[in-house]
Write a protein that binds this DNA or RNA. Structure first.
Lengths: 203, 203
DNA sequence: TAGATTGTTAATCGATTAACAATC
DNA sequence: TAGATTGTTAATCGATTAACAATC
């Protein structure tokens, strides 16, 4: 259900940019393929945001959803690993768009120290605990080589990181109070593949 | 449910590498946090893979799951866009691990033509239709700048691509017979954030 | 006022789980 | 044979949807 919340948000931001002020549960539902009753139910779980006979105020709904998701205030992110993946993430704008802010990038390769990626300077990994503490960073993106994933994750946890977004192919283990999200791009692809084969089509 | 199938597969591959030959629904369920009855039900939907009183043969189950998911035979992928993101994907091993094979990388910047990324040479985008046709590529990864996303997607569809994995921040629209998967790394992060706030913790 | 659309209840649907006979 | 564990049925649970009174 939370996954729908961020889909609504994404859609509403676009509608807002298009100059739309008010939207009904029916139209919003159409946009993202959800039943209008479900849209209304999703919202009423958190409060009454609409007006009967009128619909929802787009601007207001955006701010409510942002508040619910916790993205109404900026969150600092540290990227760990300045290789291809870390670089791509540093230049990626999706995080910024949602109020995330890349506070630091770390690497263990001295040749990378001082380089600027997407406006952020690469620091040495040894400085991570200090920076994380001083800046109050709670979210880290793990983009190191797979063989270094676990030890780096341990380092992050020890430094006080609470959320790890793991972009490596290694499944890392941490204490339960730290949340690890193992992103697995292949899963989505396998999923898509499956639907193709069940439809009798061949790729 | 298909998302569980790929989780089983991932886990079984690891078990197999660890030298484990047989596994019960209970143990497999524990590994990925699924009820054992659900594990069994998921499998019986596709056939009877286990032995009563014994469990499931790991090797056999892997090959069955691969077959179900359609990843038992290699699939060619084209990466479109040789920027930071395209480069990171070209070097990423997660796809290869599951039988995907990067057949070509395309870009529109002449300075990039001929460069080798992850063992694959960058071709000019104008060659895409020809290569896609001749090689029979059906899957493309869209990793171009957001403002070029839609027109590139149109080009891909016209060339005969059937599955588009969209890594840009733009939501692209295509005809319904083409499947687009819009990856949205931020969604997962928002999701994680939400759970933190509902637990009363602050980040 | 009449039309539109919400918030919410009750009905439906599907997915998860417990339980157990079958059997290795 | 006794213990383990499957495949499957029936019960439970939760999520989705239809329907509609309330009201802008």
């Amino acid at each position: 259900m939370i996954e729908r919340l961020s889909a609504y948000l994404e859609c509403l931001i676009q509608l807002h940019d298009d100059g739309i002020r008010t939207i009904s549960s029916e139209k919003l539902g159409n946009h993202i393929g959800v039943n209008p009753a479900e849209v209304r139910r999703d919202f009423t779980f958190f409060g009454t945001f609409g007006k009967k006979g009128v619909g929802y105020n787009v601007k207001n709904l955006i701010s409510k959803l942002k508040h619910i998701l916790g993205s109404d205030e900026p969150h600092k992110i540290a990227i760990v690993g300045a290789g291809h993946l870390g670089t791509a993430i540093a230049y990626y704008n999706g995080f910024r768009k949602h109020g995330f802010y890349i506070a630091a990038i770390f690497d263990n390769d001295p040749r990378k120290f001082g380089q600027t990626l997407g406006g952020v300077t690469v620091s040495k990994i040894d400085d991570l605990p200090k920076v994380v503490r001083e800046e109050g960073v709670k979210i880290a993106i793990l983009a190191v080589p797979p063989e270094a994933a676990q030890e780096t994750a341990d380092l992050l946890v020890k430094a006080g990181i609470k959320v790890v977004i793991n972009y490596t192919t290694t499944l890392v283990k941490v204490e339960p109070e730290v949340r690890v999200h193992n992103t697995e791009p292949v899963k989505e692809l396998l999923h898509t593949l499956y639907y193709f084969s069940t439809e009798g089509e061949t790729l």
